[in-house]
């Protein structure tokens, strides 16, 4: 399992290929990529702040939980911080499992937990100013299904 918290952009294709190349025993690979929504063109940039140290620990703990719950051959989480433009990739998860049900479920679990349990905070910058993105009740509620 690999996790990377980084400012730099990542190459979705290269990361996906590298991940899928080393998953002996897997019959399914699921990847998810989160992009910066440009809010109909009004977004100038997104700034993502995080808590160095806790971020890595929190993500590793979430990945350990996923590994304990599903039959995973491997998992990958990449999450960026810093200033991003609309359309840029913020993060990706990849999961590999013997069968697709586990790969899909683990990927959704990782996403639900990254949203509300990994210490990142997003700020949207537009011509009107800067706004911290508020956590949504539905994101917290999404954790209950696990």
């Amino acid at each position: 399992m690999r996790l990377s918290v980084q400012a730099e952009a990542f190459d979705l294709g290269a990361e996906s290929n590298a991940f899928a190349a080393h998953v002996a025993g897997a019959g399914a690979v699921v990847t998810f990529t989160g992009l910066v929504r440009d809010n109909g063109g009004s977004l100038a940039a997104m700034e993502i702040e995080h808590y160095p140290g806790m971020t890595e620990k929190a993500i590793a703990a979430i990945m350990d939980q996923a590994k304990a719950r599903w039959s995973l051959v491997d998992a990958l989480v990449i999450h960026r911080y810093g200033r991003l433009a609309g359309g840029e990739a913020i993060m990706m998860v990849a999961t590999a499992a013997p069968h697709r049900a586990d790969a899909f479920a683990a990927a959704e679990f990782l996403m639900d937990y990254l949203k509300s349990r990994a210490p990142f905070w997003k700020k949207e910058l537009s011509a009107d100013g800067a706004t911290w993105v508020a956590a949504k009740g539905e994101d917290e509620a999404a954790l209950n299904r696990w």
Partner: peptide, 26 residues
């Protein structure tokens, strides 16, 4: 100490306390 906690938690032995709004990762 980099683990989510609660407001009534004791501080004995704690070296680092962080305050922040609900997280918005992903």
């Amino acid at each position: 100490d980099q683990e989510l906690s609660s407001f009534d938690a004791p501080l004995a032995g704690v070296r680092e306390v962080a305050f922040f709004p609900p997280m918005t990762g992903g």
